[in-house]
């Protein structure tokens, strides 16, 4: 257990009669990106807020770099950078002034904050824009500034709560390249000072760990491990490829016409669990062990309903298929 940068066990938090977080345990290693996914109200944001110490848990424990978030709050918080869904910045201050503000309230001295800020701004690609007012930045640049302010204190743990909502794919790609770099870099940006409580941790090669919540499966698939939350619990946790493997052989792709006919036929098959239209194709999820049966009879069923089948094949399951299958359980 000493290998974990974040170690949360048996976390519980209720709001009135609602069990927002219900016995959640999660461990994250240094250099790991952990994705927290789940429906609205599944408990993702509450979990994040418990991890950062913004909420007091009813039961359970959280330690960050070996510090208990409730008992050693200051030390633990010093290890955390937090980018919330709607992070605030001062629109009439420049980029550099914004970072300075966040650096100083986090206790960085004058000799520390400037070189550190410049280093971070170069890293996120805002070096050239340091004197621009934050209000004049594009959406993607604002997001990078948010990331920069979260990084200025050299956190070991970065908590990102749905950071890319409403951001275009090019900018999201840039953002993710930064996040992945941050965790895969052997610490040049991060661990110049040894702040570890635990000896074994300071020897690890990697720097930052990231916990990110997202409703988007293309983002979840970039994480090293993903936890699916439902009704306050983590109901599944694994690498994206292992999660996908749970549905191996059970997702079929159908092409043909008219697509409506194919859809209705697939819906009516008793061994079909889910049908989704993807433009000119259908993705169909089959009950475990029944794929061959369904593949055998679908062509005839489609034909007798007046449809034409062009292609029917087993495809690799997507993370979204797994998400939907898990949500239905």
């Amino acid at each position: 257990m000493t290998d974990y940068l974040v170690n949360a066990t048996g976390l519980k938090k209720s709001f009135g009669a609602t069990r927002a977080v219900d016995d959640v345990s999660l461990q994250v290693k240094a250099g790991e990106i952990y994705g927290l996914v789940g429906s609205d109200g599944a408990g993702k944001t509450t979990t994040m807020r418990l991890l950062v110490g913004a909420l007091l848990q009813d039961a359970g424990e959280v330690s960050v770099c070996g510090y208990d978030i409730q008992k050693q709050t200051e030390q633990a918080r010093a290890q955390i950078g937090y980018l919330s869904q709607r992070f605030s910045m001062y629109e009439d201050l420049t980029v550099l002034e914004n970072i300075r503000f966040f650096a100083e309230i986090r206790g960085l001295s004058q000799t520390e904050w400037l070189p550190r800020s410049m280093e971070i701004l170069e890293f996120v690609g805002l070096g050239k824009f340091k004197d621009r007012r934050a209000g004049q930045l594009s959406g993607g640049m604002k997001q990078k500034l948010g990331l920069a302010t979260a990084l200025v204190t050299r956190p070991r743990l970065l908590l990102l709560d749905e950071p890319t909502t409403g951001v275009d794919p090019v900018t999201r790609q840039d953002f993710w390249q930064l996040v992945i770099k941050l965790v895969s870099q052997p610490a040049s940006l991060n661990v110049e000072r040894s702040t570890f409580n635990d000896e074994s941790l300071s020897n690890t090669q990697h720097g930052v760990s990231v916990i990110i919540s997202t409703p988007y499966m293309d983002e979840a698939s970039r994480c090293h491990r993903v936890g699916f939350m439902k009704a306050g619990k983590i109901i599944a946790e694994d690498t994206p490829s292992n999660l996908r493997a749970r549905l191996n052989g059970r997702v079929l792709e159908l092409r043909g016409s008219p697509i409506n006919v194919l859809r209705h036929v697939a819906h009516q098959d008793e061994d079909v669990e889910d049908v989704a239209a993807f433009g000119d194709k259908l993705h169909v999820r089959i009950r475990a062990g029944k794929s061959e049966l369904v593949m055998g009879r679908l062509p005839d069923e489609i034909k007798s309903a007046g449809g034409t089948l062009i292609d029917l094949r087993v495809i690799p399951p997507a993370l979204e298929d797994v998400f939907i299958a898990l949500s239905e359980r």
Binding site: V37, G38, S39, A42, T165, G166, A276, A277, F323, I324
Partner: peptide, 13 residues
């Protein structure tokens, strides 16, 4: 924007 996959799937249906 910001909607989970289950709700999104229902929306697209």
């Amino acid at each position: 924007s910001g909607v989970d996959p289950t709700a999104r799937r229902a929306f697209w249906d």
